Simulated scan of single mutants.
Amino acid sequence: MVLAFPTFSAGMLLSMSLIMAIGPQNAHVLRMGLQRQHLWLTVAVCALADVVLIGLGVLGLAQLGGLSDKMLGALVGAGVLFLGVYGWQAFQRFLKPQAMVALNDGAGDQTRQAPTPLTQRQAILSALAFSWLNPHAWIDTAVLIGTASLAYGQGSTVFGLGAATGSLVWFLLLGAAAFWLGRRLNSLHLWRLLDGAVALMMWATAGWLIASLF
């Protein structure tokens, strides 16, 4: 048990360090929190999707030597298409932020951009798309964590459990932050900045993925 704890901690710290950057998946969780739409369902799906990728990396891809060129190319193509479309949608919201609704949360009337209501099924599919159509998620969680686990030999499973725990902890913290912000930040100016930043982030990531193919 004493020997397992450093291995578990190493996996947890590596996992959290890889996913803490505000990428497409984290940006999606923040947006769902700000919109107050299926936040905890989104958090649960993103966390479980990461756990699946970590398990795949630790138990399979590490031993196979990573993703094949064809699989990686197909994943990059799907990711570029998805990020491009989502970036365009965010850019349209940035250009036309006139859709407003009145809110009253006890602190007076507020206004913010009206979100398009999502069903639970749509929320689940969106979270899975951001988790599994993002090549960065595969490289970070499946390939890098899977490869790092090989250094721990028979302790690779403990390392993987630590990495999975790190992912769960991160998404719970991110969900709590998004929930807190969603109850306080309702200005139209903030929504425009967020949508503009998301559009640039999605397109920059898509451009980087395209460049990585050459």
Results as ranks from 00 to 15, higher is better:
Trp191Arg: 10
Phe5Thr: 09
Lys70Ser: 15
Gly33Arg: 06
Gln98Cys: 12
Ala107Thr: 12
Gln25Arg: 03
Leu128Phe: 09
Thr119Trp: 03
Ser212Phe: 14
Trp88Leu: 06
Ala10His: 01
Ala177Gly: 08
Phe179His: 11
Asn26Phe: 03
Arg184Lys: 05
Ser156Asp: 08
Asp195Trp: 04
Phe91Pro: 03
Leu72Phe: 05
Lys96Pro: 04
Ala129Lys: 05
Ser149Leu: 10
Asp109His: 15
Leu64Ile: 10
Gly77Phe: 15
Gly166Glu: 01
Val101Ser: 12
Ile145His: 06
Pro117Glu: 10
Arg121Cys: 13
Leu174Arg: 08
Ala129Glu: 07
Lys70Phe: 12
Gly153Tyr: 14
Ala21Asn: 05
Ala163His: 11
Ala114Ser: 14
Gly33Cys: 03
Gln25Cys: 11
Ser167Cys: 07
Gly160Glu: 13
Leu48Gln: 11
Asn186Phe: 00
Gln110Trp: 12
Met100Asn: 13
Ala197Gln: 01
Phe8Pro: 01
Met201Val: 09
Val2Trp: 13
Arg112His: 00
Asp140Gly: 02
Gly175Glu: 06
Leu18Trp: 01
Val169Phe: 12
Cys46Lys: 12
Leu75Pro: 11
Pro115Gly: 00
His28Gly: 13
Leu190His: 04
Met202Ile: 09
Ala49Ile: 01
Trp208Ile: 07
Leu13Ala: 04
Met12Glu: 02
Ala49Glu: 04
Leu56Lys: 03
Leu41Phe: 06
Met1Glu: 14
Ala129Ser: 14
Ala137Arg: 08
Val76Arg: 02
Lys70Gln: 15
Thr111Glu: 13
Thr205Pro: 02
Asp195Tyr: 01
Leu14Ala: 13
Gly66Ser: 06
Ser68Gln: 10
Asp50Phe: 01
Ala78Asp: 11
Ala199Trp: 00
Ser15Glu: 04
Leu150Met: 15
Gln89Leu: 15
Ser9Asp: 10
Phe171Val: 01
Ala129Tyr: 05
Ser212Asn: 09
Ala90Phe: 02
Ile22Arg: 05
Met32Asn: 04
Gly79Leu: 06
Ala148Gly: 00
Ala129Asp: 07
Phe94Ser: 12
Tyr86Ala: 05
Leu41Asn: 09
Arg192Val: 12
Leu18Ile: 05
Gly57Ala: 07
Ile139Arg: 06
Gly87Cys: 15
Ala164Ser: 13
Lys96Glu: 12
Pro117Ile: 09
Phe91Met: 12
Ala78Arg: 06
